[in-house]
Simulated scan of single mutants.
Amino acid sequence: MTYLLFALGLVALFFGGEALVRGATAIARHFRLSPMVIGLTIVGFGTSAPEMLVSVQAALAGQPAIAIGNVLGSNIANILLILGISAVVAPLIIPVKKLWRDLGFMLLATATIWIMLLDGNVTRLDGVVLIAGLIVFLVTAFMTSKVETPEVELGDSPQWKAWAMTLGGLVVLVIGARLLVDSATELARAFGISEAVIGLTIVAVGTSLPELATSLIAAIRKQTEIAVGNIVGSNIFNIFGILGTTALIHPIVADPRFASIDMIWVTIAAVGLSVLAFVLGGLPRIAGFVLMATYAGYVALI
């Protein structure tokens, strides 16, 4: 039964990611928005649903610090592992002019949360600041997209189908990720793998599976803007949206290791992605291998 659930999880991730990419692309064409903006918002925020669920549940249970580890670990995996794999499968080459603003917001979000974690607390006021950052990002992204994106021919397909495909894809992705994480954990325990290794690998990457499925399929379909926008948007939303919401629900008392250890890796990932994107004009296969090797080093060290 466990093997069947594992297989069903994989199938759900594939078809959910395929539906999400197709639907999001159709929405972008209809509203004359760039695929990058759709990737940053609808796709990026949507694939962060597992992280949001975990963080809000932790906050309501009086364990808001779990939200920090969830978000930081997800941001590291999103860049080093998921973009690394996606770039190896299909080079993610995007003009720098389409990346600089959004990478800048990601770096700003990273710096902001690091500063907030230095005193060991993320207060409700900090939560308000983070949510405000998310609003500024969204307004800037949509306003800029409307100016930069040329008009295109609208398809004959009804918009409700595109939205249904997008939302349905998100739901299937979340269900698939849950099935895969639960079944993989059971299989790991059956083979005698320790709880620590399970936590650092299966569970840590588990909430990022929707991003992995979506970015991989987008890369294979040559929708590179959605593939990259999905990850950058997810990382921005994880910090501004998820930690902002969690802090508003329950102020976060953070373990000192988050600021002294984990934030260093989050920053290395964010800065590394930005440097590679600007120097190489995107993420060619060699950059993908570099990101994956860095993630392997991170897992080995922790």
Rank of each mutant, 00 (worst) to 15 (best):
M165P: 00
A254D: 05
E151G: 15
F289C: 13
L8Y: 08
I264A: 09
V275G: 13
G9S: 14
T207P: 05
I38R: 05
V147D: 07
I93R: 14
T214G: 05
I76R: 03
A296D: 08
V11G: 05
E225Y: 07
S55G: 13
A77F: 11
A132E: 01
L280M: 14
G84A: 11
F105I: 12
K161H: 09
V21C: 08
L248C: 11
L83D: 12
E148K: 14
S55W: 13
L280E: 08
I239R: 03
G155I: 02
I249C: 06
S215F: 10
H30G: 00
V299P: 00
L33T: 01
E186W: 08
A7V: 15
I42T: 03
A111H: 05
A213Q: 07
S183K: 10
T140Y: 09
G288A: 12
L180W: 04
L283D: 10
G281F: 10
I85N: 00
S194A: 12
V129N: 12
V37D: 10
E18V: 01
A184T: 13
M165N: 05
F289V: 15
T294Y: 01
S157W: 01
A177S: 15
S274K: 01
W265H: 04
R221F: 05
A7S: 15
A293E: 04
A7R: 06
E151N: 13
A26P: 02
N121P: 00
L53W: 09
G84F: 03
V152M: 15
V96D: 01
G241Q: 07
D126E: 06
D102K: 03
Q63S: 14
A293Y: 03
L130C: 09
N238G: 13
L243P: 04
F289K: 09
L173N: 06
Q223T: 06
V171S: 13
F137A: 07
R124F: 01
K222T: 09
V139Q: 05
I42A: 13
A162D: 14
F278R: 11
I242R: 08
G288E: 08
D119G: 11
I249N: 05
M1D: 10
T25S: 15
F237K: 06
I217G: 06
T166G: 05
R22L: 13
M143S: 13
G297D: 10
D102V: 03
V275T: 14
A164S: 14
A296C: 13
I193A: 06
G169H: 04
A141S: 15
A177G: 12
L180Y: 04
M116V: 02
A287T: 11
R22K: 15
I66N: 03
P251W: 01
L83Q: 10
G244M: 10
I94T: 02
G169V: 02
S260V: 07
D102M: 06
V129G: 06
L72A: 07
A259I: 01
T224R: 15
G199L: 10
V56A: 12
P284N: 11
